[in-house]
Simulated scan of single mutants.
Amino acid sequence: MTRLAFYGSSLLSSYWNGAATYYRGLLRALAQLGYDITFYEPDAMDRSRHRDMEEPDWARVVVYEATREGQRAAAAEAALADIVVKASGTGYEDDRLLRLVMDAARPGALRIFWDVDAPATLAHLARTPDAPLARLLAGLDVVLTYGGGDAVVSAYERLGAPACVPIYNALDPDTHFPVPPDPRFAADLAFLGNRLPDRDARVEEFFFGPARRRPELTFLLGGAGWADVDLPPNVRWIGHVPTADHNAFHGTPRMVLNIAREDMARTGFSPATRVFEATGAGGCLVTDAWEGIEMFFEPGREVLVAGDGAALCDILDDTPTHRNSGLRAAAHRRVLADHTYADRARKVHAILHARALTPESA
């Protein structure tokens, strides 16, 4: 069985960790294809106190101290693996971890950088051309990304990566599925997202602005970091929403909103996890406009797309209950047919197979 060492933000906690369900879905599906997975995560950003998952039976999890010594000890274990993956945004000295992990990888091991925030990473490389990642790209076997389309692929290859392949978000139908409505999450429109600097303006445009223009409607906000924001009176903030509540959060409101971060909207082709999880939970999804959405869902038949806050208000005004139900059903069928983590894992497996690293049991 091929051993895969994965260094990421967290598998056990979704707290300040939007990639959690992406990691869980993909790695679980890869384990089912025969990979022996160890996930290494730092005890950083208070995630350990907000765990919403126990260690699974399909991966070993090593939580290391967010200190240089703890990081060094965890990185040294890369020498035991056949495939070594360093993901972006772990939360503690990422550049140093990348160097330590790749230095520790044994000769012949496959070396992968997995970028879960390619627009931000590429912007950083443009500002800092001598960054450790830029120097190491040519020595990697492949860069895998959370999304980004041709623009991200071309950018990484120009920087020296031997190959770059997007592995998009998807749905794990065993964890995200329709459940009965929960009155805790009743609203006309709900949005789930942590507060981030490059999301503030878009949240104002697509969520707070429409809330002010439609005071008779109810708006629900989930996620961390919104405590000091002056919310409209019809917006109810409920704080961090653990993954166990995501299905009800997405499926209960009349509509659920996706808002891309500024850099992801600009780059395009980077659908957030909630796009697939919300539709998998039977939600009626409204998303801000971003390039490439037609690759994943059909606008107007499976999801609704708003170009600005005024268009979002029109959608709230003009979507009757019977159309809402039809959108939910159509999107749910599409996500199950075309966008599951089993599909994505088969693509990753094919990439590894092409590099002659196929699990013995696969």
Rank of each mutant, 00 (worst) to 15 (best):
A187G: 06
G193H: 01
G209H: 13
A201S: 06
F208T: 02
D198R: 13
R212P: 08
D200Y: 05
P178M: 07
N194T: 11
L192T: 09
D182R: 13
R184M: 02
A190S: 06
A201R: 04
F185H: 01
A190F: 13
A211V: 04
F206D: 07
F177Y: 12
R199F: 09
A190Y: 11
V179G: 07
E204I: 13
R199M: 00
R199K: 13
V179E: 11
F207M: 14
A211P: 00
A201F: 03
D198W: 12
D182T: 05
H176K: 15
P210K: 02
L189S: 07
P183I: 08
R199D: 03
R199W: 10
D182M: 10
R184Q: 04
E204Q: 15
V179Y: 10
R195D: 11
A187N: 02
D188L: 14
G209C: 11
D200I: 07
P183V: 07
F207N: 15
R202S: 09
N194W: 02
P197H: 08
G193I: 00
A211W: 09
G209K: 15
R202K: 09
V179Q: 04
V203R: 07
F206H: 10
L189Q: 11
D174A: 15
A201I: 04
D198K: 12
R202F: 06
F185D: 06
P197S: 04
R212Y: 10
V203M: 07
G193F: 01
H176D: 14
A211Y: 04
V203S: 07
V179N: 09
D188G: 00
V179L: 13
E204D: 15
R184A: 03
F185I: 02
R202H: 09
L196I: 10
F185N: 04
P183R: 00
A186F: 03
A211N: 08
A211S: 07
